[in-house]
Structures are given as C-alpha cells and as structure tokens.
C-alpha cells in the first residue's frame, strides 16, 4: 500500500487531474480534497507509511532535479506539503518550512504552496469542552466560538438532554 500511495503522485493520471491550476492557493485547495492526498494522510495515520518513508521518497524525487529545468516532480512535492499541512509533528514543520524557504525557479509553485500551507497551519490547536450544570434542571444555552460543546446534567445523574453548540 505504501508504494502505491506515493507512486501515484508521480503518475500521469495525477498530473492530468491537476490540470491547469495556475496559482498556489488554487492548487492547495484542489490537492486538499484530492484522493491522493487523503490516501497519504490515511497511510500516515495508520502507520502504513512513516515520516522516514516520506523523507526517503522526497530524496529520491530530488535526485531528478536539474538546475535550469523545471522540476518534473513539483506536483508530488506539492501534494506531500498539503498532506502534511495539519500534521503536528516536527517533520511536518521542517518539511513545510524548508520548502517554503527555497528560492528556485525550477520549483516555484510548490514553494509558494508551502507558504500557503504554513499560513493554514497556525490553527494547530483544537478546542473541546463540556458544560456541567450541578444540581439544576435548567440547561443554560450559550455559544462559544467554534469549539464543540456538550451540555451535561449533574455529576450525580445522567445527562439531561444534550445541546451541542458550534
């Protein structure tokens, strides 16, 4: 599974699916909802591929980098950047940061895309909460930003209804 998940990034089918997207932000949005990027995220989550696998894969791609010639695996690197965008590990941070700092014409689009990914990455924190109303029957509704809240009943008894606010 791991070989297929990465090999499809260098396939003609993948390149054709990307089509004519011209800007880093549009490319990022398309890749974020693509099957290929979802496959990589799933494979990382399930342990089918590791970050070391990704490191070796990128290294093999870069062996075909030729100064002065457009880098032929730019889309593959861009897809990996999007796959790592929300991954909260040092490797993901290193990958995106280092890619965003390159200044080479040959892979300008994926450099710009990495910068877009880093902008999205500031939201690496998730919030989750619950309201516990002790000893009262009333449910007190309120809304708090984008967190998911559940209203529970007393600690002594079962929850009286549930109200999820987003």
């Amino acid at each position: 599974m791991s070989a297929r998940v990465l090999d499809q990034l260098t396939s003609e089918e993948f390149a054709v699916s990307v089509g004519f997207l011209s800007t880093a932000s549009a490319l990022r949005r398309f890749l974020a909802r693509s099957k290929e990027v979802a496959d990589i995220r799933d494979a990382l989550r399930q342990g089918a591929i590791t970050e070391e696998t990704l490191r070796r894969f990128v290294s093999s791609l870069l062996q075909e980098f030729r100064p002065g010639e457009r880098f032929q695996h730019e889309l593959a690197v861009a897809a990996l950047a999007v796959a790592l965008e929300q991954r909260g590990t040092d490797f993901a941070e290193e990958f995106l940061r280092d890619l965003s700092r390159l200044q080479r014409n040959e892979m300008g689009l994926c450099t710009l895309l990495a910068r877009e990914c880093l902008k999205q990455r500031t939201s690496l924190t998730k919030d989750r909460g619950k309201v516990f109303v002790l000893g009262h029957d009333d449910q007190i509704p309120f809304s708090v930003g984008s967190a998911v809240w559940g209203v529970c009943g007393t600690a002594a008894g079962p929850a009286r209804g549930s109200l999820l606010l987003r």
Binding site: Q86, G88, T89, L124, T125, K126, D127, R128, G129, K130, V131, F132, V133, L134, G135, H136, I140, A147, W149
Partner: peptide, 16 residues
C-alpha cells in the same frame, strides 16, 4: 489526537 495541541474545558456551573 489529530492536532498538535488539544485544549479541553470543563465548565462547571453551580458548584456548592
């Protein structure tokens, strides 16, 4: 765990 940081909030109302 799908984000780098997770914050949790236990709101407690009516602690006697």
């Amino acid at each position: 765990a799908d984000h780098r940081r997770q914050r949790t909030y236990h709101f407690v109302r009516g602690l006697r």
